[in-house]
Design a protein around this nucleic acid. Structure first.
Lengths: 129, 129
DNA sequence: ATCATACTACGAACGTTTTCGTTGTCAAGA
DNA sequence: TCTTGACAACGAAAACGTTCGTAGTATGAT
């Protein structure tokens, strides 16, 4: 029996994951605090999402304390890989170039970011064996 | 009053759009023919989606002939920009590099594709004024 | 012991997405 | 003219995603 990979997070779930990625293990209250800055949301709404995410295997829950502590069950890079890979296939016919074109036309990249991108391409190429 | 931009396409809608992008204006039957190769789907399911998409403004419909002809109402690049931009912000905190890392770790790029990517970066840089 | 508070659990409503069956229409061939 | 096949329209069910209210429970302060 293989542990199955968690499904692609929904929009609301992704927002919560980003909080967990940046804060590390957090309580519902802490996540709600951050999320509700952007978007008016009830505490119990966030709680419900995090419960659902625990069911789906998107997060792990530590119930030792009264206020449960949640953490992303997969590292950020892993989930980002799923997301990027999924969109790459479904919307860009697998063309990484088209994906980058789309991204950089939606959001102008700074000179610094271009340097980063080139550097990554160099490193990536070295990694190919 | 501003003409509002069509909403982000759902998964099923995106699949249909990709067919329209590659084939150009097409009938429901033609789209169904392609889509049903990947995924078992009834004709009327595809029809319904395309009707919904017409309502949403995602596609335009030419009713002159008995078999209506549909075409994407926005060019592929436009929609791809929305998709990439949306994911970039929501899942990658705006970092194009992270998005590319995700994409290229999900799907190994060929040497040729790397050349394309570098070339695009060069062109893109020239375009900044 | 009681009370207020900070939690979790849960149910339900509502909207959206996906799916398909049924019905009605038109056009071409018998 | 009648039938058949190919099509659009529509309704509705089922699944999913989002949102929040209410109820229950544990903890610490009075």
């Amino acid at each position: 029996m293989t542990a199955k990979t968690p499904p692609r997070p929904t929009d609301a779930e992704l927002e919560i994951l980003t909080v967990l990625w940046s804060r590390g293990p957090s309580t519902v209250r802490e996540v709600h605090e951050i999320v509700s800055r952007r978007k008016e949301t009830q505490y119990t709404t966030v709680l419900k999402f995090m419960q659902i995410m625990a069911d789906k295997g998107l997060v792990r829950r530590d119930e030792k304390n009264r206020a449960h502590v949640y953490e992303a069950s997969r590292p950020r890079e892993w989930t980002q890989r799923q997301l990027a890979g999924d969109l790459l296939e479904r919307g860009f016919a697998g063309s990484a170039k088209s994906l980058l074109v789309g991204a950089l036309s939606a959001r102008k990249a700074s000179a610094k970011e271009l340097v980063e991108l080139r550097k990554f391409l160099d490193d990536y190429e070295k990694g190919i064996r």
